[in-house]
Design a protein around this nucleic acid. Structure first.
Lengths: 110, 110
DNA sequence: TTTATTCATCGTATATTTGCGATATAAAAT
DNA sequence: ATTTTATATCGCAAATATACGATGAATAAA
């Protein structure tokens, strides 16, 4: 039991769910907001702002990276993280489209 | 350890994350899409469309309900599910606003 | 009244996520 | 060369999610 059935869904639904899941934790929402308003996205500064341990923040950053919403470059000892605009805008656009589609003619049956 | 630290974040971030998390599984994306295009949202019909067992679909529906994206009414033996437009539109709007805010002036530091 | 239908919930197994401290690695500073 | 600093990763524990079959509850049909 508890087999992974996710591959049985359409690739669009999988992609939308991956985007949503990546943003499905307040820490990752906070990280994205923080990255969006900073010029300098040094990892340590993100850690300072969040109420979580350094290793935990690092993990959340890896997840955002895995989902393609964020990219990182090392510069010396520091690690600089940025929103991966190319991908983020694209996927966020697709998500938004899906939401608009759902919102169309709001059928109410009960 | 593995304590739940979610309450340490802003209520806005928590709300946004809850919305995203509710949509963070392809089955729940598929359910929302299905509900959006149907006049009659009988539970059994949703089950037929998804590649999952009845009990699993029921669980996913409960999660969407818990997140306020869906509401259900019993009509006889049947159970009718609908998108909770009032709440869905509101939360989806807030999420969209947050995304727009993030997208503003797309700072690139690395 | 008995039987069938529809759906929710329980119990359970497994998988995944969340979180931390400890440790590793690699550059920078001394 | 040694120490400090910044960050990633490992190992672990606990929490949560995913999935199913079995069972329960309630209405409808026979």
């Amino acid at each position: 039991m508890a087999v992974n059935k996710k591959s049985l869904f359409s690739s669009e639904d999988i992609a939308l769910a991956e985007f949503a899941k990546a943003l499905g934790h307040p820490a990752r929402i906070a990280i994205m907001k923080e990255l969006a308003i900073r010029n300098e996205c040094i990892c340590g500064e993100i850690v300072e702002v969040l109420p979580l341990a350094q290793s935990t923040v690092s993990q959340h950053l890896q997840e955002l990276k895995k989902a393609g919403l964020v990219k990182g470059t090392v510069s010396g000892v520091r690690s600089c993280y940025c929103i991966n605009w190319e991908n983020f805008s694209k996927v966020q656009g697709l998500f938004n489209l899906a939401m608009v589609e759902i919102n169309k003619n709001q059928k109410q049956c009960c």
